[in-house]
Design a protein around this nucleic acid. Structure first.
Lengths: 168, 168
DNA sequence: TTGGATTGGTTGCTTTTTGCAACCTTTGTT
DNA sequence: AACAAAGGTTGCAAAAAGCAACCAATCCAA
């Protein structure tokens, strides 16, 4: 009953933009960016991880234009990062919740956050410490690990200085 | 997440471009996205990790417009993700190389790649397997770990369904 | 050493995407 | 019933992206 009735007819002329054209990019990084590769989408996901669920709250907390928010929420729902749930008592009133796919972006957000904390720290700012509930201790630094659990750098895995060994 | 409160209008009555106005965002995710939060920037970094260094190669491999490439490379250099090195013999001829800061985006790219592989796999496609050189074995799935090494989900750390319990 | 191809851009112009404000319809409240 | 709030939509102006043409320096081959 609470259908997304307005998706087709009312959405803008539905262009084939660069974003659409990457839909089938063979590289999964490109396909991931197709889902969440713009500024607002990832911030919306971040906000959803903080507990925000309502349109109006996203709008106020992010300071995003309403039409852009609409567009991004719809896109995130279409990409199954969020689901739109009708929580109305006698009609419709919506919530946008993270799906499993959306929750699974957690390591991406943590990696980005840690990178920002390390390289773009504002002078006075202490980095926000993510603390897990069970132990009450900060989470570990996120890393790429080999089979034996040793941390790996890009040079250990990719050919960033050996152009002839290209992974793709 | 202490910035829950002050993420109210993240953009004040924006006079400058959105990007400039996020420079001093208190959230490190936003600041990270300010450096690499657009489509092309992250793909350029990905390509650099594969070994690409030259303007023309980026252009051909990514199919990006030349003026946009110019702009992004300059921005990445300004943000110290890449460095521009003159490798000319009798004049100038440039290479764009990852800085330490740029190489340190490796976990972000791996997290994105694994997410894309898990959730957006094209039917026939096997995911690209990142293999470390030393062991010749695939890297582990990237995860957020607690102090004891146990994997954590977003619900273990953030308050995505308990808005009142906001992590400090 | 000359002439053509390559590299690394810049310039103008057109198309898309954003941001902003105003407006509109459906709920929820009193 | 009257009014406020939620959740959008619409129209318009400004910014960013894409595209093609052009350009100056450098390298390469004869």
């Amino acid at each position: 009953m609470s259908e997304l009735k307005n998706t087709s007819p009312t959405s803008p002329p539905a262009k084939r933009s660069a974003k659409a054209s990457r839909q089938n990019d063979p590289c999964s990084v490109a396909r991931a960016l197709n889902d969440v590769g713009d500024w607002w989408s990832l911030l919306i996901v971040r906000q959803a991880m903080y507990g925000t669920r309502r349109y109006g709250d996203f709008q106020k907390q992010l300071g995003i234009a309403k039409n852009i928010l609409c567009d991004r929420l719809t896109r995130l729902v279409n990409n199954e990062v969020l689901k739109k749930v009708d929580i109305g008592e006698h009609g419709q009133r919506f919530e946008y919740r993270l799906t499993e796919k959306g929750k699974d972006l957690f390591p991406v957000l943590v990696a980005l956050r840690q990178w920002g904390d390390k390289w773009n720290r504002e002078d006075g700012d202490a980095p926000v410490r993510l603390v897990d509930r069970r132990l009450g201790l900060p989470v570990q630094r996120i890393q790429v690990l080999d089979e034996e659990g040793q941390p790996l750098t890009v040079s250990d895995v990719l050919s960033f200085n050996l152009p002839e060994i290209v992974a793709e």
